[in-house]
Design a protein around this nucleic acid. Sequence first.
DNA 1: TTGCTCCTCACGTCACGTGAGGTGGC
DNA 2: TTGCTCCTCACGTCACGTGAGGTGGC
Lengths: 265, 265
Amino acid sequence: MKEYLTINEFSKISGIKSSTLRHWEEIELFKPVKRDPETNYRYYTPEQLIMINFIVVLQSLNIPLKTIRDIDLKRNPEEIIKLIDDQEKILNKELRRLQDAYSVIHTRRELINQGLNADPLNISIEELPEQHIIVGPKTKFPKDGSFYNPFIDFCKKADELHINLNYPIGGSHGSFEDFVKAPGEPNNFFSKDPGGNQTIPAGKYLVAYNHGYYGNFNDTVKRMTDYTKKHNISFTGPLYAIYLHDEICITDPTQYLAQIFVKIK
Amino acid sequence: MKEYLTINEFSKISGIKSSTLRHWEEIELFKPVKRDPETNYRYYTPEQLIMINFIVVLQSLNIPLKTIRDIDLKRNPEEIIKLIDDQEKILNKELRRLQDAYSVIHTRRELINQGLNADPLNISIEELPEQHIIVGPKTKFPKDGSFYNPFIDFCKKADELHINLNYPIGGSHGSFEDFVKAPGEPNNFFSKDPGGNQTIPAGKYLVAYNHGYYGNFNDTVKRMTDYTKKHNISFTGPLYAIYLHDEICITDPTQYLAQIFVKIK
DNA sequence: TTGCTCCTCACGTCACGTGAGGTGGC
DNA sequence: TTGCTCCTCACGTCACGTGAGGTGGC
């Protein structure tokens, strides 16, 4: 009859490395039931698998080992239930955090991909789907037109307004004419948060692209006005500019890629 | 015009501690745009918030900082899309892992709570809901009745059979009579996995409790047979025994609490 | 002088992982 | 003797956090 498991046998069955088992013994978190007095070999029992599995679960919930050890010492049903209740709350937060992170990188992926498929020199009329956003407070641009201070204001108020700054950030202008007058000075910044409660409606939009640093729209303004005159288009609602490619995927600032779109009347 | 942000200003807006910002500079992950040549003060710009937010998102996905740095150096749209695609897969795994952990502690909580509300000395007939489980292979008990080897077999085959050993483990006997013959030797071990594809049907069950170490059912067997005779009950299907309170919440092995239940014909 | 914000540098911490050097029975 | 499994002990690593001691302008 083999009653005891050596460290490597126990390691294989539990999936915990032997070095980790030695470490857990040293910090007095989890001990073998027995040590051979001659050889100092560690011996574990199969029912210890129950305990070690529970430790692994607690650890996977990011509970520090010290805390787990302290629980272990004074464990009783009421304490464990309290611990679990606390952890369920923490876990829900963690799940939300990860789902947010997922949503962020997914949204970014979509925009980067749109940028890769776009022809930056072409202006076109496109059917755009509804887009969810969260709009920041009205901007106040200084006379020199620097976007630094308005942007900082936006970032500072983000928390309060539940704006997640991890999503791609864009700027909105009151109208096409506002944009033409001051292309680098949007009325508002917004984050492209798919859970946002504000929406850019679906519909026919004039869509243009621009290569350049934030707020530098070069000849794109002229290209757009020329196009609207030629095709005799007029607009309704705000104009939106959002960076599909920014410093996150491009090293050269002159190659940042903005998408500019405004709804056709 | 204030163009630059000091380390503490940038820290407040970004939510990243200044010590972390210094560390990230040291490992060449994220640098201030400028250093004052006189005072060596660090200066950041608001648009660096975009980048640092992205770094935070990547880090929250458990990507090592070295990897993030390497991405940063050779970033381009295609690479970033590839990175995001890879991370979406990893993130899905992580989400599943956390949801599993949640499910495990939630299931444990339920059982511990049942144990707290139970009267261990009372035998009763109860309406039980359907329970999901995953049953392990048939056990082979040695002559001395030790459950160590059968239990190890169960643990070793768990991975292969998609049995999550983190859930509470129970034992099932072919019938009430089998249990009476050898209470400490279940035909199968099972895990109480709420996602399991096998079920214990809802219905009327005889429910008893037992205080004692694994497989030690003391006088509970006699108490149950006496009860069945007195009330003239007969059973159908297997008998299940599951530990509501085990070493996870109890230090004294003689106080482990098992629930034993078998369906009434 | 005091208070404030920044700086560097060294050391601590957490949860291990690695590797050197040694043991003991087949 | 060789191979194998175990041991201890020291040091490395990752991502910071902390604290000591110093600077420079109001």
